[in-house]
Every structure is written in C-alpha cells, then in structure tokens.
Amino acid sequence: MICINKPKFAWEIGLARMSEEEEQRRAPKTRKGKKYLESTAPQWEEPPKGLLVIHGHQTSQVVKNVLGDVARLKKPYCRQLRKKNNILPFEAGGEASLEFLCRKNDCSLFILGNHTKKRPNNVILGRLFDFHLLDMFELGIVEHKGFEEFEMAKQLQSPMKPLVCFIGDFESDETCRKLKNLFLDFFHDFEDHQVSLDQLENVIVVTLSHDRTISFQNFIVQLRKSDNYLPKVALEEAGPRIRFSIRRTRLATEDLWKQATKRPKQRTKKEKNITVQPLLGRKVGRIHVGKQKLDKLVIKKQRALKRSKGRV
C-alpha cells in the first residue's frame, strides 16, 4: 500500500545525533574525564575557535600546500589530521562523520581539501555550531604561492592577532556576505577585548574581484614615524597568496543562524584572589608562587668570603 524508501541508516533520521548527545550527557567516571568535559563545556566568553585540517580521499600537492599554509597561519588553534578521510560533506548525510571528527577534536572550524576530476584542487571551508554544520563553502584553488616564495615570510612570527581587511563589494549578495563573516571568524578571536599597539604584526587581506574570484593575501604591517602621533603604514607581502573560485555553497538555515548568533547577557567577571582594602581603597592581590629550587639558585659570589692571594 505504501511504498516509500525507508532510511537505511540511523543517521538518516537523526538517530546517531541523539546518541552522541546522550553520550555527552553521561556522567564522567574519572577525574580526568570530568576535567575533559569541563574543558569542552560551553563557556560565556569563548576562546578562539579551533581549526580542524582534514585531507580528503585524494589530494593534489597544491591542495596539501594550501592546507599546510592555512594551518600555519592559524597555528596555536589548529589540529591537523594526518590520515585520509573520505568525507564528502555536500552529499546527503556526508556531514555526519565531519561533525563527529570535529566533536572529538573540539574544533568548530574545518578545512577539507580534496582533488577529483570533476572538481580539481578543491577546498571546503566551513564552521559548526554546537557541532552541527552551520555553513560551508567549496572553493577551487586557481592560483597558489606558498610561504617559501616570499622573502618576508621569515619575519613572520606567531600570528596571534592578525588584522583582517576586506576589499571589494562583499555586501551585495548573501553568499559573499557569509563568506566574509567566515573569514573574519577564521582569523579573529574576540576573547580578550584588548590589543597591544606594538603587536600589530600582520594583516590578512581578502579581496573579491570583478570575476567573483577571491584572493587571499597576508601582509606584514610596518609602522613608520610621521610628523604627528599617528604612524604611517607600509605593507610587505609575506605569503601565502591564494586565489579561489567559489563553487558549491551551503548557507545556514535561518533559525540555526539565529541561535548561533545569540549574545549572552553582559556578565561582570569576578576578579580572582583580589580584595579591596576598605580603609585605603586599594586593591590587594594574592598570588601563588611555586616551590623555589634553592639548590639550583645562581648567586653572585661574595668577594669577602674569598681568600685573597696575599694573605695566608
């Protein structure tokens, strides 16, 4: 009477997702497990998102180089998977294993590179919310120049807080707007709301060209003195330089996006181990100093204790 294709696998009707949540809900048995769950639990003020670098079933040398370069730019917050993973996130149900890997590595951003006859030199950039796929963009690599082709790349230190610059009309359509948002998400952390002016080191520039290709560049910022207190800015390219063409995209559904962009109420953070003296009105902090190794202490040798040459 009714002939309908029954789902073959549990994940097709979302059963796998449920069991994963159940797994998370299970109380930890060891202290180590408890610590791990605490470290991955949601926080009010989030640390920068981690990036998971995945190599697809087949990768070309260009794709490998691009993945390596992007990983280097995102370095302290990056995890690279060394084995191949046959993941096709644009196919139906293909995102399940991707979500699983990201959950296990506690990363909310991913970059997946693969190379096929139909889509050569392919890179998929995307992000997750609560380890459910939010949006992803498939980009084809048109041109790539690695770090080693730029002289200035040697001067590049750990790019902890890069500036981000967008050139071109990104606001005209939804795909470009979301892509811009994704690039900002990749390279910026909103954790501590302060910056040191002598740490403005590099700037990441994303340009949308007239033919809808996206070029990705990295410059070193050099501040030069001028006649007033505002410095002159000079830029030196430090690589990598990658040009992408936009292929398939999947944008976030409206309700998921709404949930993901909800802001928490402003909370006043309690300062730890700091008391205010009521009479003097000043702050007093208490810090913990570890055990000192007195036997390895380097002390200046005292002259007075030394036997001089002349006296016996």
Partner: peptide, 14 residues
C-alpha cells in the same frame, strides 16, 4: 575596531 577588521566596500573593477 572591536573585531580588528576593516573593509573597503567599493567593488573591484576590471
């Protein structure tokens, strides 16, 4: 300034 980003919104011409 909050996100340390800037954007030149004029479209790039050929």
């Amino acid at each position: 300034l909050g996100s340390l980003s800037c954007a030149d919104v004029r479209p790039v011409l050929q």
